[in-house]
Nucleic acid binder design. Structure first.
Lengths: 193, 193
DNA sequence: ACCTGAACACCGTTCAAGT
DNA sequence: ACCTGAACACCGTTCAAGT
């Protein structure tokens, strides 16, 4: 273990966290692993494939977090859902470049493994939404529609915050506040002002 | 007119539309304008400044579209708002790279002109939401909160669709459907399933 | 199998020099 | 003012060659 391939992925992750996607050059990854600048090509199809591998791993971790939330006390499905969303929000803030790689990078080649991991994490999320919907009693909207709405709102709020376009001057609220407003709305309760 | 500077911006726009952000190299922009590869540096601080200028222009166009929608019949503020959103959605589909530059590119240096243009377009959007809220009678949520919620949901739905992560296999709906669900929810009407 | 070193065709950016 | 050509320090990627 600690194979060269795994060490290359770890180096890419470290560079992503430290300096963003632009810091992940094949040469920097190789240097960090103390191999020649050509070695990564023996393990990956190229820079894009390396980044896709990072995103795949992160989707698998996300799925695990979502599934762990599903195993929590079924009578508290709202907190299971909001807890899972908080995990995602925290990840987006602490690992911004990796979050963008997962959810916002259309240049990233869609490898089969990435597609599978992304779909699996989405299905785990959908299960959380479904349990929340049934337990809290959100009516008048289908499960698919509700999942899409929560998913889009959460991602949009995260992305706008990350891109700095949700600054105080615009009066935009935190991701948590926006999601809170959505849930209050769904549960037909007065929305906090 | 048709100054070198304006022609450089037009070339960058054409390259963005044709091949995405990665196609916008200083050298390609210069070649398209039939100037040396160094000339752009006499008009812009660098590649980032050129892209920021494109985004600034697009924010100004967006503001104009939002303001035009505000001047429509006040008795039809919901259609004014949804019409403005449709303009934005259409822009995001036809000029994906430019949309990402405006709303999702945190690498883009925030020039003062870009900040001002982005804020102005947001304020025009907020006015549309405000009129919609008062005319339709959305209660229990503040204007700022409602604007943030609509803004985040719209952007999130657009970005997920653009990144290809909202494919049919996930069962996610179109941007229009997601927004429709949100508006139905806001107006306390049964949501279409 | 895995790694190396040289090489190719690009980049963004800088600079001395021209008109 | 505006433009040019050469140059520098990077990239991703390929390839022949080594162990």
């Amino acid at each position: 273990m600690d194979s060269t391939k795994a060490r290359l992925v770890a180096a890419a992750v470290a560079l992503l966290d430290a300096g963003g996607a632009k810091a992940v050059t094949i040469r920097a990854v190789a240097e960090r692993c103390e191999v020649s600048h050509n070695t990564p090509y023996k393990h990956f199809d190229g820079r894009n494939d390396l980044l896709a591998t990072v995103a795949t791993n992160d989707f698998e971790s996300l799925r695990a977090a979502f599934e762990a939330a599903s195993f929590e006390d079924g009578a508290r499905s709202r907190s299971s859902l909001t807890g899972a969303l908080e995990t995602l929000i925290a990840f987006s803030r602490e690992h911004e470049a990796r979050y963008r790689l997962m959810f916002s990078d259309n240049e990233l080649s869609a490898t089969p493994a990435l597609e599978i991991a992304a779909l699996a994490s989405f299905q785990a999320f959908r299960l959380l939404v479904s349990r929340y919907q049934h337990q809290v009693g959100v009516t008048g909207i289908g499960e698919v529609e509700l999942t899409g709405l929560v998913y889009a709102t959460c991602h949009g709020a995260i992305d706008l915050e990350a891109s700095g376009r949700a600054a105080g001057s615009k009066g935009l609220l935190s991701v948590e506040s926006t999601l809170q407003n959505l849930f209050d709305l769904l549960e037909h309760r007065p929305i906090r002002s």
